[in-house]
């Protein structure tokens, strides 16, 4: 029997759909953890990035924080959280939030910084106070860029949450990590399919949110799957 047939059988086995170790519970754990970690990171990081971008201060810091963040190996940060916070959900959650903060700071900074200055002046000219202009003019204009950052981040969190199985937390990564330990290729492959599928669904769902946050005329240039790489030169300023 080929590995593919065995994987199909694995998915058809009712035992894999039941209880703590079943697919529905692992999926729910994964979704819940990723959602809460992304939300927490956004709540912590957005005010910082938005205000730095609004006042145009500490630009280098706001941009380089994500360059530094990228140098941190997520696997290492997850494991580091174990001696600090024990094993299970707590270290996983804290590590995921910590890893998710830098890109949101950078993106919300860039989004706010790039708001057309004439638009800001027009808001003042209309008699808007600073906080009103910030909330009703600048933030809506910056929203597509901010959402693009949260989208990239959310997908990254789903990916890193997979690794959290290594620090004795659940989620879909359990199938893979347990499969490694038991040398169970079928479970490894099935787990990988589940994880890849969830990551793609997350990308599409967050793309949907980004689409909603983007004004109609700008929607045409949106993509359902963001493209790898980084073609702006932000990254070059680090060196």
């Amino acid at each position: 029997m080929s590995i593919f047939e065995e994987v199909v059988r694995w998915f058809l086995d009712p035992a894999h759909w039941d209880g703590t170790f079943g697919i529905p519970n692992r999926l729910w754990e994964h979704v819940q953890m990723s959602f809460l970690a992304t939300l927490t990171a956004a709540v912590l990081a957005l005010p910082v990035g938005v205000l730095l971008g609004h006042y145009g201060r500490f630009g280098n810091l706001a941009i380089n924080v994500s360059n530094v963040g990228r140098a941190l190996p997520s696997f290492g940060i997850l494991v580091l959280a174990v001696p600090l916070f024990g094993i299970g959900a707590a270290p996983a959650f804290i590590a995921l939030v910590a890893l998710a903060i830098p890109p949101i700071v950078t993106n919300s900074y860039v989004g706010m910084r790039d708001v057309d200055p004439e638009l800001k002046e027009a808001a003042r000219g209309l008699g808007m106070r600073e906080h009103v202009a910030l909330l009703r003019v600048e933030m809506p204009v910056a929203l597509p860029v901010i959402m693009a950052g949260i989208r990239t981040d959310g997908v990254q969190v789903v990916a890193t949450a997979t690794l959290a199985a290594v620090v004795a937390w659940g989620g879909l990564g359990r199938f893979i990590v347990d499969g490694f330990a038991q040398r169970d290729d079928v479970q490894i492959f099935a787990g990988a399919i589940l994880v890849a599928a969830l990551a793609m669904v997350a990308e599409l769902a967050l793309a949907g949110l980004q689409w909603l946050a983007t004004p109609r005329p700008m929607r045409a240039s949106m993509r359902w799957f963001s493209r790898p790489g980084r073609t702006d030169e932000l990254v070059l300023q680090g060196g």
């Binding site: 990916a159 997979t162 893979i176 787990g191 990988a192 890849a196």
Partner: peptide
């Protein structure tokens, strides 16, 4: 580039796991 985008969504552990068998 679209296919690259879709493949890039696959988390690293899942990509390694797809190859292990």
């Amino acid at each position: 580039l679209s296919v690259a985008g879709i493949l890039y969504t696959i988390p690293s552990l899942a990509l390694f796991a797809l190859l292990v068998p």
